[in-house]
């Protein structure tokens, strides 16, 4: 066993500071274990979200030494022995208290996505799909909604375009519906207008931090951008629409 010092953000809203805590650490511990030990031994009112502690629920997202991470999947042994470990809440969200961020607007974004709408059943007992047809959509549905991609996205983090852009998490969610082979809803107007997909300039930061290794930019955002372009900016299709309208 060894001792280690952690700096943890304490406070509400913008009114907070880093506090230092020193605890004993065991083999195999992750950052969330350290936070729990600090809670049990030094600061029972230290607020942190968590549930599964196995990288499946996406609750315990924070920034560890400035990098968006799931604290339950971040091992202490990834940091050099003398290196200090600083844990702060996700920067792109308002702070409720300590390590807990206010993610309520993310849920509002989600509710605004036009819902899944399937084609009529292929047979009485449902639809027929090949595994290869659904793999793209299944990749999107691996999303554990940890918000790390929202946190790292510069459109939100640096430019604060929260009202204009739903962000990578919800582009992934939209893609999960739209890439489902039986879905028939057209979400291109939503993506172009309230979804603000045009704000994304494909810097791929979201893809880099995704703990589920979803290729967010390449497999979710770019295909959705293509659909918007096809729908609104394809000159041939625009001509066809014009002729039909007459």
């Amino acid at each position: 066993m060894a001792e280690r010092t952690f700096k943890v953000y304490r406070g509400s809203g913008d009114d907070g500071q880093l506090e230092s805590y020193t605890i004993e650490v065991d083999q195999g511990m992750v950052v969330l274990d350290a936070i729990h030990r600090i809670q049990a031994e030094h600061a029972p009112d230290l607020a942190v979200r968590w549930n599964c502690k196995a990288g499946k629920c996406g609750s315990c997202s924070c920034e560890v030494n400035g990098r968006p991470r799931l604290t339950c999947m971040t091992r202490l042994s990834d940091y050099e022995e003398g290196e200090s470990i600083t844990v702060t809440p996700m920067k792109a969200f308002p702070v409720i208290k300590d390590l807990v961020a206010d993610v309520s607007r993310a849920y509002r974004n989600n509710a605004s996505i036009p819902r899944f709408r399937p084609r009529p059943r292929d047979a009485e007992d449902g639809w027929r799909m090949k595994q290869f047809e659904i793999e793209r959509a299944q990749e999107m549905r691996k999303c554990i909604e940890c918000f790390l991609c929202q946190d790292v996205c510069h459109v939100l983090r640096s430019h604060g375009k929260h009202a204009e852009f739903i962000g990578p998490t919800y582009l992934v969610r939209t893609a999960g519906y739209s890439l489902n082979p039986i879905d028939v809803e057209d979400r291109s107007a939503f993506l172009k207008e309230s979804g603000g997909i045009g704000f994304c300039n494909i810097t791929k930061c979201c893809t880099e931090v995704c703990p589920e290794s979803i290729s967010i930019t390449d497999n979710a955002i770019i295909p959705l951008k293509e659909r918007v372009v096809d729908r609104f900016y394809d000159p041939v299709k625009a001509l066809v629409r014009l002729v039909r309208r007459r």
Binding site: F116, R121, G126, M129, K130, I134, A137, Q138, D183
Partner: peptide
Amino acid sequence: VRELEAWGALFDRAEDGRM
């Protein structure tokens, strides 16, 4: 279970395209 598919769930498929 089948109803979940009508609401957007995507379960792994068998060769014949069913769940």
